[in-house]
Simulated scan of single mutants.
Amino acid sequence: MKTGLFWLTDMVIVAGTHGQFCNQLFRLGHHVANAIQLGYEVNCADFEHKHLFPHLMQHRLVSDKPLLSGFQQKLLKVGTRRPFQGTIRRLFEQQGYAVIDRAYEFNHADQRFLEQATQQRVIVTHWDFRDYESFNQQYAALKNMFALPAQAQKEATELIEKARCQGNMVVGVHLRRGDYAAWKGGKYYYDDDAYAGMMAHITDLLPEKRVTFVLCSNEPIRHAAFANWSTVVSDKTFLGDLATLSQCDLLFGPPSTFSGWASFIGQVPHYHMHQPNAKPRFDEFKVARG
């Protein structure tokens, strides 16, 4: 599409940084899956963790070359504030861009987005862009593109092998602490008793299995609180923990994209504890859909 003095090639620019590590993986993963499905290029110059994923940056439809000027970046940040959204959107539209600054769930019957993505540059500033159909259809490609560094995978494999020596069912426990003390007023900052109660429940759900629990946390773990169960405690980096959880047979923890991403990328059924005394049925453990 010709605008002013230059041509804008068709492309979707994933602008800005939203949330922590796995929030960013889900956001970009949906964009990449949509791009592969529809055949356009996606630009992720703002993705701050791209150095961890060399296969992602080698894909022919993914680029990380900065395309927006510093001034344009500042305009987009201002545009995230509701009073200025319309004005900033119109400024970019006058330059030949389309702007998506609201939550957007892609529908494959949506010809308007398809036309925009394949005929001009689209800037997506909102974190909540989702294409669940493509995200799951492109699982194999995403698994390759978002493969964690070899060292993290090696650490995880060693820990899981240790757990499998102790039992024939490995259940990952994501004891999310740290920032959860403040997030939503500490609603999901569960104490040891909540996790221990869930471990006891899972043991009862699987009487025919010898369950070993792999404990991962962003705070030190009190081993004595879980002495009644066969456990392996991770002391790895957050990347090692993520890889470890993705290699388990089941997962549970409070609502978190960290365990959600581990579930999706490892295709591991998981359960998010929305209450500290949760007692889910076995069929409530499901692979995260994205």
Rank of each mutant, 00 (worst) to 15 (best):
L114R: 13
F6N: 15
G172Q: 02
K184Q: 14
R102C: 07
R289Q: 13
P207M: 08
Q95H: 13
H126F: 12
H51E: 01
E158C: 04
V42Y: 04
R27E: 12
D283P: 03
N107E: 03
D192I: 06
R60I: 04
A117S: 15
A262C: 01
G185N: 07
G185S: 09
F282E: 05
R82Y: 09
H274N: 15
L251M: 11
Y180P: 08
T9I: 12
Q58P: 05
V170L: 13
V170N: 13
H270Y: 15
L8P: 03
A182Y: 15
L205T: 09
G16Q: 01
N136H: 01
I100E: 05
F47S: 04
A117K: 00
I221S: 14
F129W: 09
G253Q: 06
S230L: 14
N43L: 02
L76K: 02
N277R: 12
L8G: 01
G29D: 14
L175D: 02
L114F: 09
T17S: 15
C22D: 10
A98F: 07
T244K: 00
I202M: 09
W7F: 06
A181V: 09
T244W: 03
T87L: 12
R222C: 14
A262V: 04
L148W: 01
Q37W: 04
W261K: 00
F53A: 01
A181H: 15
L250D: 08
E93Q: 14
L175K: 07
M145Y: 10
L56K: 02
P269C: 12
W7Y: 14
R176N: 11
V233H: 07
Q275V: 15
M1I: 03
L8F: 03
K143D: 13
A156W: 04
M273Y: 08
V287F: 04
A33P: 04
F26E: 06
P254I: 11
D110V: 05
F238Q: 14
G186K: 01
D10S: 13
A33G: 07
E105L: 06
L159N: 01
D101T: 02
M1A: 08
